[in-house]
Design a protein around this nucleic acid. Structure first.
Length: 263
DNA sequence: ACTACGTCCTGCGAGC
DNA sequence: TGCTCGCAGGACGTAG
């Protein structure tokens, strides 16, 4: 599932290709999740940026195309729009074609006025790798809600871009049971640092590929080799040797160490 | 206002 | 071998 490191890796590769390109044709899957793709025909792409897990293509009419990759979304150049899992495509003025492939169709595309977003994008927390994301901010944000701490991270409100993989990784490394509803200031300081650590590491490693993730070049990430917790249930904890456990929190599979992450 | 849960999707792997 | 069934989960809609 593409989270911040994966989306940022894609953004970095899309930027030099797409900035300055004019979209001269486009097509989409009939679902309303993808059909806004065609609203960009005729527009020139002025920027390729990112907020959390959202890719933002700035258009020359003041609007932005917002792309969320969902679970299985992929963006890469294609020769022709023939792939059965292709959900949208854009033909550029240099005859290149950008394809959006998404097997499970959890992704979505919107076109809206820049700086006038809706849904989760409108209430997104700070970028975790910016100066705005401080321990004090995280502590204050988490204190506002009584939901489980992992559920809060996945809500994108305390901080943007953290999904299931990096939420499990950060909680494990911070020694916090992801189902707790209240964390001490000391715990939140550790959690803040580990969120930054796991995302930075994943970014350096070109993202995590468990199944579907590939970047624009078609390459898989390498960060799966560095995961300490996510998906390792049944295997021994690297810190204490106990067997990692699996549970479900608010519908999300969660791996944790019952010894290192006390409730 | 807040929290919890169902829904969307499809491929894959386990089990019979 | 071939089938069924449960699982994976980000964001959003709905219910309480």
């Amino acid at each position: 599932m593409p989270e911040l490191p994966e989306v940022e890796s894609i953004r970095q590769q899309l930027e030099p290709w797409l900035v300055g390109r004019q979209i001269i044709s486009a097509g989409s899957h009939p679902s309303a999740k993808f059909s806004p793709a065609v609203e960009t025909i005729g527009m020139t792409i002025e920027s390729v940026s990112r907020r959390g897990k959202y890719l933002l293509l700035g258009l020359d009419d003041g609007r932005e195309m917002v792309i969320h990759l969902g679970m299985t979304g992929q963006l890469f150049p294609i020769e022709s729009p023939t792939d059965p899992y292709l959900r949208a495509w854009w033909g550029m003025d240099d005859e290149s074609i950008l394809g959006f492939r998404d097997v499970r169709r959890f992704g979505r595309i919107r076109v809206s006025d820049a700086n006038h977003h809706e849904g989760t994008l409108a209430i997104l927390g700070p970028e975790p790798l910016s100066e705005e994301f401080t321990p004090e901010h995280l502590y204050a944000a988490l204190k506002k809600s009584n939901r489980k701490i992992k559920t809060q991270l996945l809500s994108q409100k305390p901080v943007a871009g953290v999904g299931n993989i990096y939420a499990d990784e950060a909680c494990f490394r911070a020694g916090i049971y992801p189902g707790v509803r209240k964390a001490t200031k000391v715990q939140v300081v550790r959690l803040h640092a580990e969120i930054i650590n796991v995302l930075s590491l994943a970014l350096e490693n070109g993202g995590t590929t468990l199944r579907d993730y590939v970047n624009v070049e078609g390459d898989q990430g390498r960060n799966q080799e560095f995961l300490l917790c996510y998906g390792r249930y049944g295997e021994p904890c690297y810190a204490c040797g106990d067997i990692l456990k699996r549970t479900v929190l608010d519908g999300r599979g969660t791996t944790f160490c019952g010894n290192c992450q006390k409730r």
